[in-house]
Every structure is written in C-alpha cells, then in structure tokens.
C-alpha cells in the first residue's frame, strides 16, 4: 500500500506548483517591452498602423491582462497551447516536432555525465592524494570552468574541420543514402557525439567532484571499516557498502540539473544547429511569440517536477532510512 501511495503523494504536490508556474511565467513575460506585432512589423521594415492594429486585434493582444491570463490558463487545462503568431502554426505541433531531439540530447548527456562522473569520482576517492587523483582533479576543474559553447566550437573546429571525422552540426546527414537502418542509426549517433559530450562535460565535472567528496566521507564510516576488517576485497567494499550511500547527493543534484540542462541546451543547440526546444524558446523570446515560450516553459516545468518526483522515488529505493522517516 505504502509503495503505491508514496508516488501518488509526490505527484499530487506537482499540481498546485504547475498552476503557480503557469501564472508566474505568464506575468513575467509581460514585463518584456514590445510585442510580437512590433517584431513582425520591425522585421518587415514597412508596416502600416492599420495592419499593426488589425494584427493585434486578431491575436487578442489588445485585450486586458486578466482576460489574456484567463484565456491562457483555460487553454492549458485543455492542453490547447494556441497558435503561433510567427509561424502561423499550432504551438503544440511546433513543440512536438522539437521535443524528441531535445530529450534525446538531454537524456544522453545526463546519462553520460552520471556514468562518467560517478566512475571518476569513485576512482578519485579511492586513490585520494595520489597523482592520478590530482591529475584528474585538474582536468575536471578545467571542464568545470570552461563554458560549454566554447568547448562545442573548439570540438567542431578540431574534430569536424581539422580531422573531418565527425559532422559540424545538425541531427542527420540530409538526404543520405543509407543501406540499412543500422547505417541511419550510426549516422545519428555520429551527429550526437559532439553535442552530447560538450553538454555533458560540465556535469561530469560536478558529479565527479561531488562523488569524490561523498565517497571519501562514506569511506571513513564505521560500517566500511567493519566490511574491510571482514576481509572483503576493496572493490567489493566500495561497490556494496560505499557506492549506494555515496550516491545520494549525486542523484539529488542530477534531479536539480534537469532544469539547468534545458537552459544550457539553448547554447549547445545553437552551436550544433540541433533542432531542439531550447532554440525554439530562444527564438520565441526574441520575437515575443509568447504562446510558444509559455508552452515550452510550462512543459519544462512539468518535466522538471516529474523528474524530481522520480528522483524522490529513487532516493526511497536507494536509502531505506528515508522510507522509515516518512
């Protein structure tokens, strides 16, 4: 019973939060000066006052703030995100087109960051104070401090332009003639390597440092000493008695980072011409096409809340003590 209730309870928390987010994001974007019609007219370089007024009327931009907010909220309840002013297309389909590529990039980057970060962190903790530890610390500090877009651009220059072994950007070879589905998949993977690694490096650095310190802490605990005293080999001690305890801070941070990754995705997507949500959000902001922006913000907040709920559940599974405390 408890096993079913716990996830439900976690999910129930997300409802009021998402309503709050919808209202706050809506009010926040209103603060930006200028509207979509200003941008539309500005880009075209010659509009008339009548066409601009007509567009504002057609888009409902001339209505009072409260009316627009209520319309926005009632749309969200029905999962109707409206129609984009700029693309003259339903927002839902524009977002749906981009969602998979962003999720693929984020998922791969997060998985890579977790696996490599945890491995490196554990390795550094186990060899703390050695040259290996210090060397890895220096490398990690470098990737922690260098911005992702620079790494991205440099990796393009080196791997794509100089060596020519990987593509400079995009998601696939356009119009590529592939002999089978295997080739097409390989092509996709080749396009994913650089953006995934560029995005993951920063998070690898964070997780490795976090994992190193929490592992060191756990290594000093009594039960670890007992396990070692039993005569268990060192790797078994680490795997069975240390890792699970040391993982808690890393999983907590990973949950928080989903949001940060969505933010960082804009930069990586721009550098690698990756057709993702981050770029769509940025373009929507720059053109004041708020229907797209609000839909993406709403979707991202749901995604963040959902993954945080998932992390909470993961914690329950990892650490029985949390279960007991409830």
């Amino acid at each position: 019973m408890r096993a079913i209730l716990a996830p439900l309870k976690v999910l129930a928390h997300t409802v009021p939060t998402s309503v709050g987010i919808a209202v706050v994001t809506f009010l926040l974007v209103q603060l930006a000066p200028g509207d979509a019609v200003d941008v539309f007219a500005g880009e075209s370089g010659a509009a008339t006052a009548e066409t601009m007024a007509g567009l504002r009327r057609a888009l409902g931009l001339d209505l009072p703030l409260l009316d627009r907010l209520l319309a926005h909220l009632s749309g969200l309840v029905r999962f109707d995100f409206g129609c984009s002013i700029r693309y003259n297309a339903p927002v839902a389909s524009l977002v749906a087109e981009r969602l998979p590529s962003t999720l693929a990039l984020m998922g791969c980057a997060l998985a890579l960051a977790l696996v490599v970060g945890i491995l490196l962190g554990t390795l550094m903790a186990c060899t703390a104070g050695s040259w290996l530890d210090r060397g890895l610390s220096a490398v990690i500090l470098f990737f922690y401090s260098v911005p992702g877009f620079w790494i991205g651009l440099m990796s393009i220059v080196f791997f794509a332009v100089r060596l020519g072994v990987l593509p400079t950007g995009g998601m696939e070879t356009i119009g590529g003639d592939f002999s089978g589905p295997g080739d097409a998949l390989l092509d996709r993977l080749r396009h994913m390597v650089l953006p995934t690694v560029s995005m993951a490096l920063f998070f690898i650095a964070i997780y490795a440092r976090l994992m190193r310190s929490s592992t060191l802490q756990v290594l000093g605990l009594d039960h670890v000493r007992v396990a070692a005293a039993k005569g268990l080999p060192r790797w078994v001690v680490v795997r069975r008695h240390v890792l699970r305890n040391a993982l808690l801070p890393v999983t907590t941070m990973a949950g928080v980072h989903i949001g940060a990754m969505l933010g960082g995705a804009i930069v990586i997507e721009t550098v690698f011409s990756w057709p993702g949500l981050g770029r769509l959000a940025y373009e929507a902001l720059m053109s004041r096409d708020f229907k797209i922006l609000l839909a993406i913000l709403f979707l991202s907040s749901i995604l963040v809340m959902f993954t945080n709920a998932l992390v909470d559940l993961l914690q329950l599974w990892l650490d029985p003590r949390i279960r007991r405390r409830r």
């Binding site: 651009l153 393009i156 220059v157 794509a160 332009v161 020519g164 593509p167 400079t168 950007g169 995009g170 356009i174 119009g175 721009t270 550098v271 690698f272 011409s273 770029r279």
Partner: peptide
C-alpha cells in the same frame, strides 16, 4: 538535381560547415 537548405543559427558553426565542405 537537388537543393538542401540548412538552417544554422550560429556564425561560428556556419564558418565550420563552410570550411569543412558540408
């Protein structure tokens, strides 16, 4: 025979794509 239009938003990435022949 065919025209492929690619949308590359970043100037640095466009330079790389031109330079590499993509």
């Amino acid at each position: 025979d065919r025209l492929v239009v690619r949308f590359i938003p970043d100037a640095g990435a466009r330079a790389a794509a031109l330079e590499s022949g993509e």
